[in-house]
Write a protein that binds this DNA or RNA. Structure first.
Length: 499
DNA sequence: TCTGGGGTCCTCACCCTC
DNA sequence: TCTGGAGGGTGAGGACCC
């Protein structure tokens, strides 16, 4: 029996860039590039206008700037994207309890399980209605693919982009797929694509002809069998609503390679703290600690250590990460460091004595620093840095993209220990971040440099706003939270003119 | 002036136990 | 006591995805 085309794949069009265009009226119709703005940043998303210049995801930012020098380059504002994504996912959950989010801007929905569609006609109707609802709720366009399986639904939405809908009728899959590039299939990236190309396999039809045995021989058991089935249009993976996380990790790429061993050790400690913070936020503990090091020549190595039981103790993770670092040669320089935890559990199995010691130490540190942060908060650099002494390495590390969302660039987490006097540093404003001016109201940073920051005063739904320049330390200018794209009660009010 | 960040899955090598 | 295979756990790396 052929499956009815009731698996829906939703893909928001150029999501981050579209959200930026919706929230910044002056950018509509313009080339917008969202990504890391540091010297080693890459493009996260480019608007369709920017794509016409050849800019695409994962491209080095420097290359994007060469191709599209007049584009608007913005840092990602994940809190806003998450809020918009929540609205979209809520609409999907109205269609079915079986919604499988793949990322902030993509999800599968099993329409049949939700009783919203049972054949091609009802699926099409549901898909069109969904697109209209998303537009009304967020002001953004989405593409929808409908088919009898996840793989085909994803292929369909890809073909439908941008702002379209495509349904693959049961029985037409093989003919539709045959002329497509092997790269169309999920799981075929640059390496596998090249491997297959060298064997004369460039289309999905070629894959089907090659046969399962040949593919297994070429790319391994699991991948080979999977590829062959996909080439025949076969995919019986179910839509899974809840997926458990399997690992938690944090990593930083540095603007300049690190050479100083003490500094590297301190960064690893800082990352370990951030990782534990994230681990605790997710309500997990983990058993295997992983250290990742990318060296000056881009070679990447990982070292891991499995503990006797799962932990969420920052001291334990810090120590394990430090031990792993000892086994790594960092001469020549390090461009990226990462710390991760896998083997997740939702409980810990710590030695009770060790736990109480850690609690005591934390309480002591809180008293000494007068910090008063939540107990789960990892300790700051004051403690992390203790391993290597003062280090004398000046300010905190500046990882690429440390310019976090929602305001001026912040010192990376874990620095600025409680009670320590911070040296007065010039406020920095990241391009694209939200601000509020006491007189002119909400706006966003268009650029900054040489002690000045340029702000455009506009909000979602307003006409394109005016640009003004201030001193970076102007007391009337403050970082602020993003405004909602739709439903802002203030929309329609004029943006204040000369004050 | 190349190449982010946070994930998942797979493969292979090695060691240990049975 | 020696040998060999199966199978699990662990560690490392690669490919891929958004």
């Amino acid at each position: 029996m052929r499956a009815a085309p009731t698996i829906l794949h939703l893909d928001m069009d150029a999501f981050y860039a579209s959200v930026e265009q919706a929230s910044k009226p002056s950018l509509r119709g313009k080339a917008v590039i969202v990504g890391g703005l540091g010297p080693r940043g890459v493009v996260a998303t480019a608007s369709y206008e920017a794509r016409r210049f050849g800019v695409h995801s994962a491209m080095p930012m420097a290359q994007a700037r060469r191709l599209c020098p007049n584009g608007a380059y913005l840092i990602p504002r994940f809190s806003l994207y998450r809020a918009v994504s929540d609205v979209v996912m809520a609409l999907l959950r109205q269609l079915s309890p079986l919604v499988e989010p793949l990322s902030l801007d993509e999800a599968f929905v099993d329409l049949e399980a939700g009783g919203t569609a049972f054949d091609a006609e009802s699926a099409l109707e549901t898909g069109q209605r969904l697109r209209a609802d998303i537009l009304a709720a967020t002001g953004l366009s989405a593409s929808v693919g409908l088919a009898g399986s996840k793989m085909l639904a994803k292929v369909a939405s890809e073909e439908a982009k941008p702002d379209g809908l495509l349904l693959i009728e049961p029985g037409t899959e093989r003919a539709l797929l045959a002329p497509m590039s092997v790269r169309t299939l999920p799981g075929v990236g640059p390496a596998t694509g090249e491997h297959l190309r060298r064997a004369g396999i460039t289309t999905v039809g070629d894959l089907a002809e090659a046969g399962e045995d040949e593919l297994v021989r070429m790319v391994g058991r699991a991948h080979g069998v999977g590829l062959y089935r996909m080439a025949l249009g076969l995919d019986d993976r179910a839509v899974v609503a809840e997926r458990d996380a399997k690992s938690v990790s944090v990593e930083d790429t540095f603007d300049v390679d690190l050479h100083d061993r003490v500094r590297i050790r301190n960064e690893v400690q800082r990352l370990a703290d951030r990782c534990v913070h994230r681990l605790r936020e997710s309500g997990h503990s983990g058993r295997t600690i992983v250290l990742k090091v990318r060296r000056y020549d881009f070679s990447t190595l990982t070292r891991s250590e499995t503990l006797r039981g799962p932990t969420d103790d920052p001291a334990v993770v810090r120590e394990a990460a430090a031990r792993l670092l000892e086994a790594v040669d960092t001469t020549g320089g390090v461009r990226l460091l990462g710390v991760g935890v896998t083997g997740l559990a939702d409980y810990t199995q710590e030695d009770l004595f060790a736990q109480s010691m850690a609690a005591e130490a934390a309480a002591e540190a809180a008293t000494a620093g007068g910090g008063g942060g939540p107990a789960a908060e990892p300790d700051g650099a004051a403690e992390a840095g203790g391993t290597g002494g003062a280090g004398g390495s000046g300010g905190p590390a500046e990882p690429t993209g440390s310019t976090g969302p929602g305001g001026p660039a912040q010192a990376p987490e874990g620095t600025g220990a409680a009670g320590e006097a911070e040296p007065a540093r010039e406020r920095r404003w990241a391009a694209g971040s939200d601000v509020q001016h006491a007189v002119y109201g909400p706006g966003w940073v268009q650029g900054s440099g040489v002690g000045r920051v340029t702000v455009r005063f506009e909000r979602p739904g307003s006409p394109p706003g005016r640009v003004r320049t201030f001193r970076v330390d102007d007391p009337e200018l403050e970082p602020s939270d993003p405004l909602p794209l739709v439903g802002d009660p203030a929309v329609g009010e004029p943006v204040p003119e000369e004050g």
